[in-house]
Amino acid sequence: MPQAYALPMRALETCLYVDDLEAAEAFYSGVLGLSLFGKVAGRHLFYRLEGSMLLIFDPAASLQPGDVPPHAGKPGGHACLGIAREETDAWQARLEGHGLKVTRYAWGNRGESLYFEDPAGNVLELAPPSIWGLG
């Protein structure tokens, strides 16, 4: 039987890969309004979210040896960022105002998700935690 720990596990980092860090920074900072926590030109962008981090890496650069073990993916990932349920309409208007194609999906009475792509083709989702029964 697994050992019980004092704190429940939660996602600490979500990592996406992009081929153009400048376009990614313009998108995540400008369109989504996230605050840049740190960056290394040509390698990565880090954004602090509520209780976790969003890491945006250039896949070729993240394969190079460094302080952490090399790791890489490729564009085409998925991440869901939590929003307040009552902000869904405003977010859809904002995203569409930036020229993004938004697909809206209803999860019964649990809320709705907004799906769209970043400039690298990663599928992003904005949704209230209630879609998973979370507070």
Rank of each mutant, 00 (worst) to 15 (best):
M1Y: 05
Q3W: 03
A4Y: 02
A6E: 15
L7K: 15
L7I: 04
P8T: 04
P8D: 02
E13Y: 09
T14V: 10
D20H: 15
L21F: 09
L21Q: 06
L21A: 12
A23L: 13
A24P: 08
E25Y: 08
E25H: 13
F27T: 01
G30M: 00
G30R: 00
G30H: 01
V31E: 03
G33W: 04
S35G: 02
S35C: 02
L36A: 06
L36T: 01
G42V: 03
R43H: 11
H44R: 06
L49F: 00
G51I: 08
M53S: 14
L55W: 02
L55Q: 06
I56L: 09
D58E: 07
A61P: 11
A61G: 13
S62K: 02
S62A: 13
L63S: 15
P65H: 14
A72G: 09
K74W: 14
K74M: 15
P75W: 03
G77D: 08
G77T: 06
G77P: 11
A79M: 05
L81W: 00
G82C: 10
G82S: 13
I83F: 04
A84N: 08
A84V: 06
E86M: 10
E87C: 15
A90Y: 03
R94N: 12
E96V: 10
G97Y: 09
K101F: 06
T103A: 14
T103D: 11
Y105S: 13
N109A: 15
R110Q: 14
R110C: 12
E112A: 14
S113K: 01
L114K: 01
F116C: 03
E117N: 09
D118I: 01
D118M: 03
P119I: 05
G121F: 12
V123M: 11
L124A: 07
E125G: 06
E125Q: 11
P128C: 03
I131M: 05
G133C: 12
G135C: 15
